[in-house]
Design a protein around this nucleic acid. Structure first.
Lengths: 208, 208
DNA sequence: AACAATTTATCACATCCGTGATACAAAGGG
DNA sequence: CCCTTTGTATCACGGATGTGATAAATTGTT
């Protein structure tokens, strides 16, 4: 065997560098050269691990999707074991779980920033289209499951349509995330959490 | 006097061409050359009317802000004359007014697409920062005014905080607009309108 | 007709981009 | 020790971009 380098680890290093560039300067500035510089590598090395820019971009977005998806999957398992608990308790967990999609700390802020830039780019970049679509549909599936579970726990006001409420909550989350990332001076992270809390509470039966 | 050309009209033509390029290919592809081609002009002509790319971009975004703002201003005047009408009627008008911010037809779709691309670019482009900030704050001011008027007409459930509801409705609109523009396959225009309607209705007193 | 201002059209230059090709270094197996 | 495989580093090419400089055409005025 020749030189042994952890290939997957290197690819992850490059992708992490790409994420830093995207967060700092936007996806437009994320060229092979700038990413290589950020990673402390030569452009030739980057090209050794990725066939070209398209593969790098796709791999990066897939990595981000997997990262966020994996974190959510763990939370969902906890959430699933909550059957039988009182509705207010489930509501708290729902808020916490949905908060994972908001830029409430630096880590999540970076993630959301990357996803926003990639999703926006995907509108006119066919190479990212399927991944952006997956992002949107996966979010809706998650929100729907949470709302459904909230409903069976009696935490949902009667007369609400699941389809509409799914779309409503998803759009609310998208809007909060986008504005918090694009205009942190207009929408602070704490306000994000407050609004999410208010909405989920508002879905519950009237507090009288 | 030398050659007489309507300078402002020409600038508008160039900006319209820029909008077409942005909608079709994204803001990344909106270079001086592609815009000139789209406008059927030589790049030299474009540069004669705009000092450089930065001025073109700023003028374009300002034009879009003014265009949308002007249309809303007219609607708001109508909305203001509705004092004394029954709450359901005012609610209808509020929905219609807020619908102006959603991509419910091709014209509004193009506008929202441009604003989304510009606002996203503004995150890392200082030249557009103040305009993007204005976009976000103006939307909030509009939403707040509508909610306040709805409240005085008795169309708002008691116990709702204006600050929070403003942010909630604004984020809902932003999320709907973004997704409808970026992923029309996931969120159809008609669904947008349905969700907005449902939210505004939900703000009213319980239908019991 | 001559002139001047405006508009249009080109050229050139430095910079950045993705990519193909290729050389160079390193490291483990024969 | 050699050699094959893997990793690293450069070079070069074609294309695109913003911009400075400048020529050329157009049009109204004098």
């Amino acid at each position: 065997m020749p030189k042994q380098v952890d290939r997957e680890a290197r690819r992850r290093d490059v992708v992490d560098a790409l994420f830093r560039v995207v967060v700092r300067d936007g996806i437009q500035r994320a060229s092979l050269r700038t990413v290589a510089d950020e990673a402390g590598l030569n452009i030739g090395s980057v090209r050794h691990y990725f066939a070209g820019q398209e593969e790098l971009m796709r791999f990066a977005m897939r990595s981000m999707l997997d990262r966020v998806g994996e974190r959510l999957r763990r939370r969902i398992e906890e959430f699933g074991e909550l059957s039988g608990l009182p509705a207010p308790r489930i509501r708290d967990c729902a808020v916490e779980l949905l908060g994972e999609l908001l830029p409430l700390d630096d880590s999540r802020r970076a993630e959301v920033t990357v996803l926003v830039d990639f999703s926006t780019a995907a509108r006119t970049d066919p190479a990212l289209d399927d991944l952006a679509r997956e992002t949107a549909t996966a979010t809706r599936a998650l929100v729907r499951r949470i709302l459904a579970r909230l409903d069976t726990a009696g935490g949902l006001r009667p007369g609400l349509a699941l389809d509409t409420e799914t779309e409503r909550l998803t759009s609310l989350l998208d809007g909060l995330a986008c504005t918090a990332v694009l205009r942190p001076d207009v929408l602070a992270a704490a306000t994000c959490a407050t609004v999410l809390r208010a909405h989920v509470d508002d879905l519950g039966p009237a507090t009288g």
